[in-house]
């Protein structure tokens, strides 16, 4: 079943009197349970594609069906609703609320989903437990390490049980070792049947996915399945045999 179905989308920005074609003609299907990496150099249009996939932005042209719903013409509030329920974001800079503790950060999407306090806290605890942070629930982001912050962000992305997890350079601000831990966590999430879209410009990160889509100049340059992807162990890399 296609979670994402994109047909001939284009995104054109008006910069002064000039039109910038960030995406030219992109068509793409992503199925449930896939682990996809979107790769491309800066200026390739991969951020634009990610914003559209994440319902943060709408395409200028073309059709975007997300879980069978046409979202390309939706208004801001309808998109906010889709993001809230169906998309879990993981950002390079974590994007946690600095003044709230880990638990409240994870609760946040559930608040906007209108879930009651008691149920919210249970779900958030479970999600933090899942990423191995049950002893850090009441720490604020500045009391956590980079890796721990990213794990809080992942817990926040998972807590609503979204249709896709959209990770934008999730290891970009982490050292190699911590990055590996995070990728191991993504692998675990993938193996539990979640759909993950990973946006990165680093080859070795992309190779954790089972499918790599390469973008260049606003178009898909290559879309291929990875034959022998990296399957990281819980605490490091391990090559699948």
């Amino acid at each position: 079943m296609n979670i994402i179905n994109i047909e001939h989308i284009a995104k054109i920005y008006q910069v002064g009197s000039e039109e910038v074609h960030a995406l030219r003609d992109v068509s793409l299907n992503i199925e449930k349970g896939e682990y996809v990496a979107i790769m491309g150099p800066s200026g390739s249009g991969k951020s634009t594609l990610m914003n559209i996939l994440g319902c943060l932005d709408t395409p200028t042209k073309g059709l975007y069906n997300f879980t069978g719903v046409n979202v390309s013409q939706m208004n801001d509030n309808e998109l906010a609703n889709i993001r809230n329920k169906e998309i879990g974001f993981v950002f390079q800079t974590f994007n946690l609320l600095p003044r709230s503790d880990a638990l409240h950060n994870v609760e946040l999407p559930l608040i906007y989903a209108g879930i009651s306090s008691h149920e919210r806290k249970d779900k958030a605890r479970l999600a933090l437990d899942h990423v191995g942070l049950n002893d850090r629930m009441h720490h604020k982001p500045n009391e956590l390490s980079g890796g721990q912050r990213q794990r809080v962000a992942i817990a926040r992305a998972l807590v609503t049980q979204p249709a896709i997890i959209l990770a934008d350079e999730p290891t970009g601000n982490l050292d190699t070792k911590t990055g590996e831990d995070i990728m191991a966590l993504f692998n675990e999430i993938y193996e539990q049947g979640n759909t993950i879209i990973l946006v990165t410009h680093e080859e070795y990160i992309a190779e954790h996915a089972e499918r790599i889509i390469r973008i260049r100049d606003g178009m898909i340059e290559k879309d291929e399945h990875v034959k022998d992807r990296y399957i990281p162990k819980k605490n490091g890399f391990s090559k699948a045999d």
Partner: peptide, 10 residues
Amino acid sequence: GIRKAIGAKT
């Protein structure tokens, strides 16, 4: 931005 990304409405 964060709040809007994770579902806060206008």
